[in-house]
């Protein structure tokens, strides 16, 4: 039981980075980016490229890959989303789906369909009393917690963080107060890109790297963000932990391949009962 909770917490942490990224971009741009899954895939493959093909140690490959993905994400915003920003949010949704399909197949074109894995040594799991924690889980735990603390510091204590929260809160007033929306948008995409790339590496460590990997995370990531109240980034982390633990506990009564159904059921119930999110405050469209 405790083991399940631990595994669930780790799964939740894994989800929390892309959920945070999704909700961050939503809070500032007011559109749900369906390409987040393919960003994750691209991040994992970029890091794979540096790690396996160039032979760099994983942490260097991951850092360079994260910056690479951040650049890509900013470029996509510039080319695809910016020209559509004045249109309805629904148009942006469809455009992000187009981006998702193009990116995923770009990966397929260059890397093929077969699963791959990073070049890391296999280590024995650690044991604490009856609890088993394998090396990948430990990496996830440490990396995600560090990333979350850093994002929290940026968010709460820096000038950039205040600018991001100000634009999310009231874009018109933010402009009047001298905040450049363009710079905030770019920073949000950079942070999202870095977080998603890290998540891609961690998912790749935990399972395999394959073109479908990000797509498989799309539903739980959205569910986590909606649980948190979609426009409140830090609440998305709480949402992600809830999903992770719920998915893990559900394996007691359901076969493990139905995790996604658990996420869907949670989302459907939530949307019917508490559409403004479990942890967030009410957000009204338009």
């Amino acid at each position: 039981m405790l083991q399940l909770l631990l595994n669930g917490a780790v799964t939740g942490l894994l989800l929390s980075l892309p959920a945070l990224a999704l909700s961050l971009s939503f809070s500032v741009l007011r559109f749900a980016n369906y390409a987040i899954g393919s960003y994750l895939t691209c991040g994992a493959y970029l890091v794979y490229l540096f790690n396996v093909l160039f032979g760099w140690p994983l942490w260097i490959a991951a850092s360079v890959g994260a910056l690479g993905l951040a650049t890509l994400v900013v470029a996509i915003d510039y080319l695809a989303y910016r020209p559509l920003r004045k249109r309805s949010g629904v148009t942006l949704l469809v455009a992000s789906m187009g981006v998702a399909i193009a990116l995923e197949n770009l990966v397929r074109l260059f890397a093929g369909n077969s699963p791959r894995s990073f070049d890391v040594a296999v280590a024995r799991p650690l044991r604490f009393g009856g609890l088993r924690l394998n090396y990948e889980q430990l990496t996830i735990l440490i990396t995600v917690l560090t990333a979350l603390v850093l994002v929290w510091i940026i968010f709460r204590l820096t000038r950039l963080g205040r600018a991001m929260r100000a634009v999310a809160d009231n874009p018109d007033l933010a402009a009047v107060r001298g905040i450049s929306r363009g710079q905030v948008v770019a920073s949000v995409w950079i942070i999202s890109g870095v977080l998603t790339a890290i998540a891609g590496v961690l998912v790749g460590l935990d399972a395999n790297i394959e073109p479908q990997m990000g797509w498989n995370y799309l539903l739980p990531v959205f569910t986590a963000a909606i649980l948190g109240g979609i426009a409140s980034p830090m609440a998305a982390v709480a949402g992600a932990l809830t999903i992770g633990i719920a998915e893990e506990l559900a394996t007691l009564v359901m076969p493990p391949h139905y995790r996604m159904i658990v996420a869907f059921l949670i989302m459907a119930t939530l949307l019917l009962v508490r559409p403004w999110g479990l942890f967030g405050t009410r957000w009204v469209t338009r």
């Binding site: 205040r162 100000a166 009231n170 018109d172 007033l173 933010a174 107060r177 905040i179």
Partner: peptide, 27 residues
């Protein structure tokens, strides 16, 4: 030239001190 809009003229989810800081630091 600074401006106080008629409605929605504070950042509602931020503290008063943060509102004042934002009023200052980007200008």
């Amino acid at each position: 030239l600074t401006y106080v809009p008629q409605e929605a003229n504070v950042f509602r989810n931020m503290s008063v001190l943060e509102n004042l800081r934002i009023g200052h630091e980007f200008i």
